[in-house]
Design a protein around this nucleic acid. Structure first.
Lengths: 356, 356
DNA sequence: CTGAAAGCGCTTACAG
DNA sequence: CTGAAAGCGCTTACAG
């Protein structure tokens, strides 16, 4: 440790500028010079110091991805996709974990660690609009997920209302009439922004039904246990639901577990649809019908947007005026993956995990 | 962006040294001075530039954790625990993803990104001993996981042989006599270091049984699909097993899925034990008996070891001679969590997910 | 095509 | 208790 440009320059008998040129692949270098420098680099085992470069250029080549829960496979998948997409741009990803807490999300968005990163992709849960408006500086920011904000930042998310309606329509088509919605987090229950809940409501109304409040169960979080608790409450109803649309797959899996414990048949007694298409959903005793967001597209679009903002900021005339930013809203696609938890059999495309 | 120590010094009418002292909480500063400086800091919204500090001190306050698969909840849990433990030492964690590939693991261990981090915790899959011996410089390194190496690095892992024997003994105690081992990765099959397989063998021999080769199924990876494929092969045997000990929970869950598809009863027809104690295992149609490593202890010990090495290196007289490092091997604890997949009922301590 | 020099924002002996 | 100055390892106008 400790071989610097200067050491290489000394050995090759050139200036540090020339070594820097070789390292950075500048076009116009005399072949002999390049060769001599390259040999010195190899002999000395020189490797550029990213920190010094960062200090000088103001660019680290690192972007951060802040997600609420790494333990949720959805975010693990998303992280993998973001890492891929960033690699295409020669960027490294720093993974951050907010636990879905407002304080952490605010901290991250305010530019905690901002000297380290060129940009931030944030998937917020509790962050409020005012937290975002209070953000005065910090690197470019791209938002992910269901929450909608009135702030000058790009936002990438599938059309959650449409996706939820797709799921509910599927249940209606199967003849279900008492469809519960499980997983509305308490503090967001009143917000108009709770898009999946809105989709549930709209689709039931469209079909001529009545969205019943007693069939909407608020939860503390979005985890399996929350789904289990909610399902238990639903089964205690005088007239339990014949279908459940869960906020996400983890919640749905918790619900499935309780149904299994009670000896209820899925989907005969209760059909279940999740959201996210995590791998776990394919491997339970009953495989899970779910809404599959196009994660690769989400990741790619988010990274592309962010990189564009970073580069615009660098070349920005008169200092990229934040107020002048026109935020982009992009809607990647989604599909409904039908499996046993609604139809009682695996779909044609994946009849069985293993043939035989 | 752009407020430096110098700006603060100018405003407060002191030297940069004094500002630096205030920022770093040096004890002996005249109260009036500190106050004046603090006010300037607040007014200007100054925040120290971590990159410059890193360049100067050689310490970034960042440690890297490189794991094979973020999608495996075991590693997600472990990552969360490491982040916690590192925070106690005022360190930030950079998460790295190797996909369990030798090239990536070598790259990471060789000090890719080494200028950014103070130390590395690596959980290798395919890394070979020679890859490790070829490591000439790079920051302190702590190894995690089942693979054992003859190289001068600390290694934190539970006693995998003992843990495997515990699992197999449980199956033997239940009267099972044809116990399969599923999940030996092909390329590691011949290695004596495949500790869980060794535990399986030893425990069967101890009980007076015969470890049968046809009951050991190699897999391509350690994922659900691998478990499903392996289980399918086992069921095609003339005499299928009456129990399965899986390399990890994901493999076990894949096996459970195939058993469910075939209409076989768990545990009556086939009992299943996994390894890792991931949350998914508690929520299937049949909850999974599993070996639970003490993840918090693993994380804490790994971080403690690493920080100790980092600080020793910094203060090391005559440059911490790598050959002089005496590697530490530490064995955190583990327990067997008995659930439905072996006993047919949830254990007393967690009878049902939700009472009622 | 290449060199000499300034400077990114810090910390840290060295003085006083 | 505080200041002036060097230097961490780079990149980048500015010359030539």
């Amino acid at each position: 440790m400790g071989v610097s440009l200067k050491d290489v320059a000394l050995r090759a008998g050139v200036s540090v500028k020339t070594v820097s040129n070789v390292v950075n692949n500048y076009p116009h270098i005399r072949p002999g010079t390049r060769e001599r420098v390259q040999r010195a680099i190899d002999e000395l085992g020189y490797r550029p110091n990213a920190t010094a470069r960062h200090l000088r250029t103001g660019r680290s080549g690192i972007i951060a991805l802040a997600v609420p829960e790494l333990g949720n496979p959805y975010f693990a998948d998303l992280a993998a996709a973001v890492i891929d997409a960033a690699a295409h741009h020669g960027h490294t990803v720093l993974l951050d974990h907010t636990a879905g807490l407002r304080t952490n999300e605010t901290l991250v968005s305010q530019g905690f660690r901002s000297h380290l990163i060129d940009g931030l992709i944030l998937s917020p849960i509790q962050l409020e609009n005012e937290d975002l408006l209070r953000r005065t500086d910090g690197p470019p920011l791209v938002l992910l997920g269901e929450r909608e904000y009135d702030a000058p930042y790009d936002h990438i998310a599938i059309d959650n209302v449409a996706a939820a309606r797709l799921a509910v329509r599927h249940l209606l088509d199967l003849g279900r009439r008492r469809i519960a919605f499980v997983g509305a987090r308490r503090e967001t229950l009143r917000q108009p922004a709770h898009l999946r809940l809105r989709g549930w409501r709209e689709e039931i109304l469209r079909a001529g039904g009545t969205p019943r409040d007693e069939l909407v169960v608020a939860t503390d979080g979005y985890d399996r246990l929350d789904g289990a608790v909610a399902m238990t409450r639903l089964l205690a109803l005088p007239e339990p639901p014949d279908a459940v649309f869960a906020y996400n797959d983890l919640v749905a899996l918790g619900a499935l577990r309780v149904l299994a414990e009670r000896g209820l048949r899925v989907p005969q007694d209760v059909a279940v649809v999740g959201f996210d298409d995590i791998e776990d959903g394919r491997y339970g005793g009953v495989s899970l019908t779910t809404v599959a967001p196009d994660k690769a597209a989400i990741a790619r679009l988010a990274v592309d947007c962010l990189i564009a903002r970073i580069e615009a900021g660098a070349g920005g005339a008169a200092g990229a005026d934040r107020a002048a930013i026109v935020p982009r809203r992009i809607l990647p696609g989604h599909t409904l993956v039908v499996r046993e938890s609604t139809t009682g059999r695996a779909r044609a495309a994946e009849p069985r995990l293993v043939p035989g």
